[in-house]
């Protein structure tokens, strides 16, 4: 009889263990490309130029072909997160830095097998191939992290000298 009691206790414990799983999607599903703004400043002690973050006084960003703005008249901003098209391999942004406007084109590959969890499913992640732009305000762009996944990381750096 003792065995049966032990078994009963174990089975009840098991019931509670298996019932506590009311799962929801709680993970971050946003796949955003982060671009940071930088300038070069002269270090007077060493005589070398160093990269420093640049705060843009006012910034407008919209996607090419989309009327609504992602960022509108954003004040003193050092970096922005923007969504890339999930069903295409090129996304163009029109970015107005103060008074000057540039177009930034991002070329990439999509990965539609980036798994998060059963509740959240998969997201479409990207791998950057190339980033090009016009050069009214922007002097150069460097890609520092090609993989765009649902984590907070800087992907491209935009330089204005």
């Amino acid at each position: 009889m003792k065995i049966f009691k032990t078994t009963l206790i174990l089975l009840i414990t098991f019931i509670f263990l298996s019932c506590t799983s009311s799962e929801e999607c709680r993970e971050n599903k946003d796949v955003l490309m982060q671009m940071g703004f930088y300038t070069k400043t002269l270090n007077t002690k060493t005589g070398l130029y160093v990269n420093t973050a640049l705060a843009i006084d006012s910034l407008w960003v919209n996607g090419l072909g989309v009327d609504s703005f992602l960022f509108e008249k954003k004040k003193s901003i050092k970096s922005i997160d923007v969504p890339l098209k999930k069903l295409s391999t090129q996304t163009d942004f029109i970015v107005r830095f103060n008074q000057k406007t540039d177009t930034i084109s991002v070329f990439y590959q999509n990965n539609d097998r980036y798994f998060i969890s059963l509740e959240c499913g998969c997201v479409i992640a990207h791998t950057i191939d190339e980033v090009t732009s016009t050069n009214h305000f922007i002097d150069s762009i460097s890609v520092i992290n090609r993989d765009i996944i649902p984590t907070d990381a800087e992907h491209i750096q935009i330089y204005h000298f």
């Binding site: 098209k85 999930k86 996304t91 998969c122």
Partner: peptide, 20 residues
């Protein structure tokens, strides 16, 4: 199999369903 994963993007107005 894992099916009917709906992917949407409000800004670019995209919608697709992923099926494995």
């Amino acid at each position: 199999s894992m099916t009917n994963i709906v992917i949407t993007d409000d800004y670019w107005n995209e919608r697709t369903i992923l099926n494995y």
